[in-house]
Design a binder for these strands. Structure first.
Lengths: 168, 168
DNA sequence: TATTGTTATACTCTATAACTATA
DNA sequence: TATAGTTATAGAGTATAACAATA
């Protein structure tokens, strides 16, 4: 049945294409990385469309969420939690601060570190964003039962742990 | 049980961190986009490590596969099959051609188009890459039973179809 | 008019090295 | 010595606009 399902899937892809020629993707549709990549790109595309009028990207939503739930966190802690490099985080936070959504404050215990907080404007935006995210999440999970959706996330976590860990 | 599983997962993430403070990720671990992104990044990192000595990235493996299985295809057809923009494909193909792995030939039916083929060197490389890919795939799927792995891919395909389709 | 390949361009993501000021 | 934040930089992914040649 799995091989049969694969063929059916390939037929579906062909049918949705504008091309008249059938294109053989070989093993690609059976590879986890291929399926993961395509699904992730599709979901992010949907996310960007839903959040377009707020000019918020997935990584920004993640940062705002972590700062809101953990006020006073250091930049490095946010970076570790979300898998962002320290160097790349600076520009991301600069942007959120410039837009008046988040702010760097002094740390009580470490003069090198910044303590991060959401502004009132940032908290107000998050109340809106959570609703938008709910609509987005419901749409991309529309074809999945709640049980399947939870199972999918569980499988994805297993995959993440099986693969290689980053360096830093 | 799902809520319980989520908490256990968050504890696991904390334990693997170097930080002593527990960081609340809120709903993030329950979002498909978040889990998808993290899994995809981890899998690609593993892929890059496995293919490093061949200097092959996932998109290049996909292009070589499609050209090998469908000799004579036009650039636009490869682009549609793999979700690559025409403009971005030019540089990718330039590189493969410069390395002597693929080549642009004249199309018998359309003088605007290029017919794409693998060189003998490209075919020989693919014989090696398929073995490397098998090892890579086995590793990232090590924690999954064959049935779970197939089910995961099926769910990912559903997700892809539920999300928004691209413009072009 | 539409399509194919191409060039130019821009923005984001990912990554490394190196600097400064603190610890 | 090590860590926190920063700057500079580079490569890769993604995207749009516009052009010449051809359909």
């Amino acid at each position: 049945m799995p091989e049969k399902a694969r063929r059916a899937d390939q037929r579906a892809r062909r049918a949705s294409s504008l091309s008249s020629e059938p294109i053989d993707l070989g093993q690609l549709p059976d590879l986890l990385g291929y399926a993961l990549r395509r699904a992730q790109v599709a979901v992010f595309r949907d996310f960007l469309k839903c959040f377009a009028k707020f000019d918020i990207r997935p990584v920004q939503y993640g940062i705002l969420t972590v700062i809101e739930l953990n006020p006073g966190l250091k930049q490095q802690q946010v970076c570790r939690a979300l898998g962002i490099r320290r160097a790349n985080f600076v520009t991301l936070l600069d942007d959120l601060e410039r837009r008046g959504l988040a702010e760097r404050g002094p740390s009580a215990t470490d003069q090198r570190a910044n303590a991060l907080y959401l502004t009132e404007k940032g908290k107000a935006l998050m109340r809106q964003l959570r609703k938008v995210n709910k609509a987005h999440e419901d749409r991309i999970a529309a074809s999945l039962s709640p049980a399947k959706r939870r199972f999918l996330i569980q499988l994805l976590d297993q995959i993440e742990l099986s693969a290689e860990a980053p360096n830093e």
